[in-house]
Nucleic acid binder design. Structure first.
Lengths: 106, 106
DNA sequence: TTGACATGTGACCGGATGGTCACATAACTT
DNA sequence: AAGTTATGTGACCATCCGGTCACATGTCAA
């Protein structure tokens, strides 16, 4: 299993993406805290966090008996850079900003 | 199945990512042309292209009996924007550019 | 219009994946 | 030391997914 394979497989599950959303909103949470946000047993959440950590999308730090989880944006940026070059990036951000502006006006 | 679920599921397979790489290098290819680049039957490739198209990562245009395939970067950029805010984007691009520079020097 | 070419469909099978549970270790508290 | 809290492990099962095949449709060229 290659590194990028681990990243994309990790992102393929909606529960794991939701965990990233939670960490994007606020970093440094424990398993138990994250578990309370999902309708799933602790074991399921722990398994998902392990997949995210092995993919490098989440990094952890131990503090006593607690394990704190942090979002790592680097692999996400690398996905972006794989299929969007500098020129396209400028076009696409302009387009998306325009779309957002139009939606706000309506 | 939500839109973003289709996108991430589509990206979870290495053959499909390779197809995106091929289209990133050169757009507007037919199924038969793409098939010759993979070690897989035509049916397998067609199935993967269908998944990519339903996810909006690939858009197609018919030309007679041929179907031309094009890469659509919009869903990729949206993945980026989901977990990387403007401030982090600046930090991360600086970091990645630095890393690239160091690797080129060594 | 006949044959070759490009693509599409539905069924099938082996392997991978998501979620749970019983059980276990380690650390804080009193 | 004892009870509670936070996390870790391995097995299990239902379901999904990747790839192939037999078969079919539509298009071009002579």
């Amino acid at each position: 299993m290659t590194d990028d394979d681990r990243v994309f497989k990790a992102l393929a599950d909606p529960s794991r993406r939701f965990l990233l959303d939670l960490l994007f909103a606020r970093d440094g949470r424990t398993l138990t805290e994250l578990e309370s946000e999902l309708e799933m047993t602790r074991f399921g959440v722990a398994k998902h966090l392990r997949v995210l950590e092995e993919a490098g999308l989440v990094v952890t730090r131990r503090s006593g008996r607690e394990k704190l989880h942090f979002l790592n944006p680097v692999p996400i940026r690398q996905i972006h850079d794989r299929w969007i070059d500098k020129y396209t990036e400028h076009q696409i951000t302009t387009l998306i900003d325009l779309k957002r502006t139009l939606e706000e006006e309506s």
